[in-house]
């Protein structure tokens, strides 16, 4: 699942950050027209929805999570779609699985044990998720502890204060430290875009995180009042494209929060294909952080196969 070559980062380039220009209204127009320009239908829709499952970081970040519940979720991630539905589509059972299971640190071990021997990854939110208001040293320790517990992906939150103040050096240093602490685990940097002041800041923070060596940039924690929106997604995707054009290094993208419908997930995939190309639709460069999305996709898949609308109780719960 990990891309062959990781982003190594580059020195902080303040001049580039200062040259970034973002026009919100134009992005909003692009975001509203893009899904309408790129509908996928019938078999293509089925395939794209199945593919969306492959990109899901199946997530639970609830206060009342228990090890049993997390185990169930891990099982669901390994086998997200009913076997009969896959058979009807002439697909092998192991073709479709989620990318990873995403949890707090205390559940990392549970997940790692549950998915052991499967292609599903173990992902931990970290660094004082979701607000990030803990000392820097503790953040590093948290990352190291999760990696030690079996996490191969770490979703960190950036210090919003650094972004809001435009202190790019501080943000760069912070993320670079996180990257080092991750070791072999992949680093996803959550910008919490809903708490940033402007789309320009979103673009700037995206660039800084990539310069500092992020493997993925991610929109939101799912805990902000505004989560993944398409205009924000386009800004981040374009930052990734720009970074690739300048450095030749590929960084992944993960929208998270609020993506709960199959149709919306497909629109995000279409956005990736349009703005970045087919390569960036693959799970090594694209993830969707979601919990309830999978259920909606399952129902839509059954509808496509049966011709009538499905119900939630017909699909195994997590």
């Amino acid at each position: 699942m990990a891309s062959e070559e990781r982003n190594l980062g580059i020195p902080l380039d303040i001049e580039l950050l200062n040259s970034i220009q973002i026009n919100r209204s134009a992005l909003e127009r692009r975001a509203s027209s893009l899904p309408k320009r790129r509908a996928v239908k019938k078999d293509w829709q089925v395939a794209w929805m199945l593919h969306a499952i492959r990109c899901i970081d199946l997530t639970t970040l609830a206060g009342d999570d228990t090890p049993e519940r997390v185990k169930r979720l891990a099982q669901k991630a390994v086998r997200p779609v009913r076997t009969d539905l896959l058979s009807a589509l002439e697909l092998d059972i192991d073709t479709i699985h989620c990318a990873s299971v995403c949890v707090y640190h205390n559940m990392v071990e549970t997940v790692a044990n549950s998915v052991d021997g499967t292609p599903v990854g173990t992902c931990a939110v970290s660094t004082g998720f979701p607000a990030g208001h803990i000392p820097h040293q503790q953040k590093l320790e948290q990352i190291q502890a999760s990696v030690a517990a079996g996490a191969d992906e770490i979703d960190i939150v950036v210090s919003r204060a650094s972004v809001l103040a435009g202190d790019w050096q501080a943000l760069y240093d912070e993320v670079k430290d996180f990257r080092t602490a991750c070791g072999p685990a992949h680093l996803k940097t959550i910008l919490a875009t809903g708490e940033l002041a402007s789309l320009k800041q979103v673009a700037q923070a995206s660039h800084v995180c990539m310069m500092a060596g992020a493997d993925f940039i991610k929109t939101s924690t799912g805990k902000e009042t505004t989560n993944a929106t398409l205009p924000v997604g386009i800004v981040m995707a374009r930052a990734i494209r720009d970074y690739y054009e300048r450095t030749g290094q590929k960084v992944g993208f993960k929208p998270a929060g609020g993506i709960s419908k199959a149709k919306v997930a497909v629109a995000w995939l279409a956005m990736m294909k349009e703005e970045l190309g087919e390569e960036w639709m693959r799970p090594n460069l694209f993830r969707i952080g979601a919990s309830s999305l999978l259920g909606d996709i399952e129902r839509q898949l059954e509808f496509h196969l049966s011709g009538h609308y499905s119900a939630a109780n017909r699909h195994p719960m997590a």
């Binding site: 996928v40 239908k41 078999d43 293509w44 395939a47 199945l50 697909l91 073709t95 087919e278």
Partner: peptide, 17 residues
């Protein structure tokens, strides 16, 4: 083209009105 192939190619496919 079947679903299996489309899963590989991730093509747009036709969307006829």
């Amino acid at each position: 083209m079947g679903v299996k192939e489309i899963l590989e190619s991730l093509d747009w496919g036709p969307a006829p009105e």
